[in-house]
Every structure is written in structure tokens, then in C-alpha cells.
Design a protein around this nucleic acid. Structure first.
Length: 195
DNA sequence: TGTCCGATTGGT
DNA sequence: CCAATCGGACAG
């Protein structure tokens, strides 16, 4: 099961399903031929496209920033938020459905020393426990926007945790402007600890 | 061209 | 609680 890259068909499924199923999977970033950074996905959020007031593509919006959302499932959608932090998303569904899954938190696995360097902190607990934090730890930025997750530079693998996982869900974070949609239980997370 | 503001974070 | 920090989005 491990070391098996998720395929195109995985990402083409309904966004909520992908968001939940990404929990416990392993995000791998190969900075170059030698250096590998990876972590287990422990928190995600689904963004449901044109019908979702919290989604950047709400109402069919199609601006330069969000063009990657209009790629087929299995691509990266990365944008800068608050002029300070990057957010990493996994594009889902067909190109006519501009939907994505935000990766909100990881449990660091490989390349921890590099994450510590990238983040400028030593506390491993808070290395990748937020969408902006994990991008900084992985040194991910908009240069990877639109990149395929089926290639060798960045991808997601199956992963077999050593313990059974407890799956939870709740309202998404930081989208108070979205009205009713702010209550939709589209945030998925795993109860710690994971090994 | 001008103004407003955000799928966050870190420090007070 | 609040500042940081900047580019996207949209109004004019």
C-alpha cells in the first residue's frame, strides 16, 4: 500500500470524498534528486466550486490567480494569502468543476531538519500545523502552482499508519465572510496522535 | 488607477 | 487583540 502514488482517478472523484480520503496519506516533495520532504496529511478542507461562497471560483469566477482550479483533478493550486503566506491545494474533479482541497496540516515525516531550517524554529510540533506553516516548511510557493501531482516533483502516496485513525469533521476555518457556508462541515481532520 | 481585504501567523 | 504585507479583484 505504501510507496504507491495516488492516481488521476483518485483526484477525479467528488471533492468531499477526496478531502476525507486524503487524510492519512503522505505528501512528498522532492526538492531535487537528493532532498525529500514529506509529511502525513492530518487536516483538509473541501472547497466546492461555483456553488460555494467560500471558494475562490464562487459564481463561476475565472481570474488569473485561480486558473489552476480549472485544471483537471491531480494538479496543485497554490496562492498567496494576506500577502504573506502560501496555501497549498489539491485540485479535484474535471476542468469544468473548479474545486479543490486545502491541505491545512501535516505530521512531519522525512526531511525534518530541512523543515526546521525553512521555518526558522525548533519546535517540531508547530512545524506544519497550519496551511501557511506547511508551505514554508516545505519551501513551497506559487512556482508550483499548476504543477501536476502525478509527476515526480510533488505527489501524494498511500500510507499505512501504525494505528487506527479517528476521523472527524467540522466547520471550515477563516471564512466568516461566506455566510451560511461557513457552517458547512467541510473541514476534515484526524484525531492525533498518528505514527 | 485607487481602495479594500483575505482559505494566516506570530507576538503582545 | 492586532500588525504584518502585498497582489488580486473590482469599482470608477
Amino acid at each position: 500500500m505504501n510507496k504507491k502514488k495516488l492516481t488521476h482517478s483518485f483526484y477525479m472523484r467528488p471533492t468531499k470524498k477526496v478531502a476525507q480520503d486524503l487524510l492519512g496519506k503522505k505528501l512528498v516533495y522532492r526538492m531535487n534528486s537528493k532532498e525529500v520532504i514529506s509529511g502525513i496529511i492530518i487536516e483538509t478542507e473541501a472547497y466546492l466550486g461555483v456553488k460555494d461562497p467560500a471558494c475562490h471560483s464562487y459564481g463561476g469566477k475565472r481570474t488569473n490567480r485561480i486558473l489552476s482550479m480549472y485544471l483537471p483533478g491531480g494538479h496543485c493550486y497554490i496562492y498567496l494569502i494576506y500577502g504573506l503566506h502560501h496555501c497549498f491545494n489539491v485540485v479535484t474533479g474535471s476542468s469544468s468543476q473548479p474545486e479543490a482541497v486545502l491541505i491545512r496540516a501535516l505530521k512531519p515525516l522525512e526531511g525534518v531538519s530541512m523543515m526546521i531550517r525553512n521555518r526558522g524554529i525548533t519546535n517540531v510540533e508547530s512545524l506544519t500545523d497550519g496551511p501557511g506553516k506547511l508551505c514554508k516548511a516545505f519551501n513551497i510557493n506559487r512556482e508550483l502552482d499548476g504543477e501536476s501531482l502525478l509527476g515526480d516533483r510533488i505527489y501524494i502516496e498511500h500510507y499505512k499508519p501504525n494505528i487506527s485513525l479517528t476521523y472527524l469533521k467540522g466547520p471550515r476555518v477563516g471564512i466568516g465572510y461566506a455566510g451560511e457556508a461557513a457552517q458547512w462541515p467541510l473541514r476534515y481532520f484526524i484525531k492525533e496522535p498518528i505514527s
